[in-house]
Write a protein that binds this DNA or RNA. Sequence first.
DNA 1: TAGATTGTTAATCGATTAACAATC
DNA 2: TAGATTGTTAATCGATTAACAATC
Lengths: 214, 214
Amino acid sequence: MSGGMVSISTPTLRRLPHYLREIRKMKSNGKQYVSCTKLSDITGILPITVRKDMQQAGAVGKPKTGYDVEQVIVALETALGLDNDREAILIGAGNLGYALLGYKGFNLCGVDIIAAFDSDIKKIGQEYHDKKILSLSMLEDIIERFNIKLAIIATPPEPAQKIADRLAAAGITGIWNFSPVIIKVSDEVVVQNVDLTVSLSVLLSRVSKKKKTD
Amino acid sequence: MSGGMVSISTPTLRRLPHYLREIRKMKSNGKQYVSCTKLSDITGILPITVRKDMQQAGAVGKPKTGYDVEQVIVALETALGLDNDREAILIGAGNLGYALLGYKGFNLCGVDIIAAFDSDIKKIGQEYHDKKILSLSMLEDIIERFNIKLAIIATPPEPAQKIADRLAAAGITGIWNFSPVIIKVSDEVVVQNVDLTVSLSVLLSRVSKKKKTD
DNA sequence: TAGATTGTTAATCGATTAACAATC
DNA sequence: TAGATTGTTAATCGATTAACAATC
């Protein structure tokens, strides 16, 4: 659909979901138009930044009125790749895996976890949040049979790289990695890391810096 | 202790934990020195970037030999604010909260969750991963009595802002926010967001962009 | 010594912000 | 019309990368 041949920068990509969430709220409140200044007020992001982000997302607005809510939602969803539903699998049904299996935010992104894998025989065959836990030996079979492209790694760090290798070989193109380790994959696979120790460290650093400068 | 009066940039702050993790491994393997090129090989980060990061962290190395493992660990821990232990509380004992209560990564950061809070009467009084679930009405009391400075918000988005207001008023200076909403606080409080919907959206966007350009 | 590595200074690149024109 | 808002072009800022000197 044209519109977005331009590549979207990572900082912008990170802000888009916030706009989308707020605009969806407005839509359900019956609003028809939204302006950058309005979004700026809500999110705390500078109006000019919002405008630039909208531009990158391929949204087109009308001077004075702003952006059509329906249209801008479509633009943002397309830019974020939420426009087509996706099925995902999860590897590692520990504490974090369990929480992710019950996480509702996935629906907002059009993602549905169809199965989870673990190596613990005691877990295999059980259901967590209505999702079946399968043996890791079935990994490739399920990926290929259901043509899965998206995988979530929620294992300890040690097996993460090997799991990633198996996923890539089986045809996975996107890996959401919660394991605190840097995973190396070929260029065809996209890895998005959520390293909680990194995030916590950044918080601690900022807090103690603030304390020092007081 | 001088060393680090210079403020550390966010991108650098994000990379430091990776170096720290790998250098700790080296230490336990008996290594005495580590070079930027070595760290680059392991992490995939450019050597010059590693060197610049080390500089920001206040690490001092020797030409030809590299950085003393013991010394650089101290430097990184100090830069990351991991040098003093911290007690934290958690608000919202749902799926995610439960997982966080059992998360081992906290120890690596010197953080210990001493209690969790929830509004659900059925949960109050129970123990998750050996941590007591307390009533939200006791929030301020516990924070002040134990002089807690760090809080983790793992509630749904709706109550998050109000919780944050209560936390700030009670003396919390650092908030780790897992709720998918932008929290507004005064300048004295540091908020670090872990918005899973944002992270997942970024992944989806990258995957679908890659698909288009093939 | 020679060579590898750190430390430092400069160049490049990209994101943010500012200024202003266009338009409904 | 007047004013608010988008769209666009330019300026600023900061992070990354490159080049090279210093040093063990």
